[in-house]
């Protein structure tokens, strides 16, 4: 499935993501990592912390609605894969980010932005296996 190359909107969206990361650090002193936020929502021992994470996620989920108000359409979600692949991929992502301690937002944006060596290594690892996986699935197995 072809997708349109969108350098400007992707750059602009990236700027907003970076801005959100900086604001969360400036105001609340935290890394904006989706893995950490979600992981914390699955613990219930600190209600103050839990509400803060819940507010972040509610705000995130409101993003597409504000996008809808501004542009007249929802962000596109196209799935060139089966539901089974979504489920299996999700399970693997969950295990991986638990052990790896972060994902694209936490390591890829926040960690790399403060030049954490752990995050640089993590980013290289997940990028490399994502390239390899897509190549295998699309050009070796499915090719």
């Amino acid at each position: 499935m072809e997708t349109t190359f969108t350098p400007w909107s992707s750059l602009g969206g990236g700027v907003l993501i970076g801005l959100a990361a900086v604001l969360l650090m400036a105001l609340h002193g935290r890394i904006l990592g989706a893995t950490g936020i979600l992981g914390g929502l699955l613990r219930f021992d600190d209600p103050v912390d839990w509400r803060l994470r819940a507010a972040l996620v509610v705000g995130m989920a409101a993003g597409p609605l504000v996008y809808l108000l501004a542009t007249g359409q929802m962000p596109i979600i196209d799935l060139p894969i089966s539901n089974l692949a979504v489920a299996v991929g999700g399970l693997i992502v969950g295990v991986g980010v638990s052990y790896g301690g972060g994902c694209t937002s936490g390591h890829g944006v926040c960690g790399n932005a403060r030049f954490s060596r752990r995050s640089m290594v993590a980013t290289l690892c997940f990028m490399a296996t994502a390239f390899a996986t897509v190549f295998l699935l699309r050009h070796v197995v499915g090719g």
């Binding site: 979504v86 299996v88 999700g90 301690g101």
Partner: peptide, 13 residues
């Protein structure tokens, strides 16, 4: 862990 995450990301998108 990170390598595993990349595999899942490459499967699910």
């Amino acid at each position: 862990g990170s390598a595993t995450f990349g595999i899942g990301w490459g499967i699910a998108g």
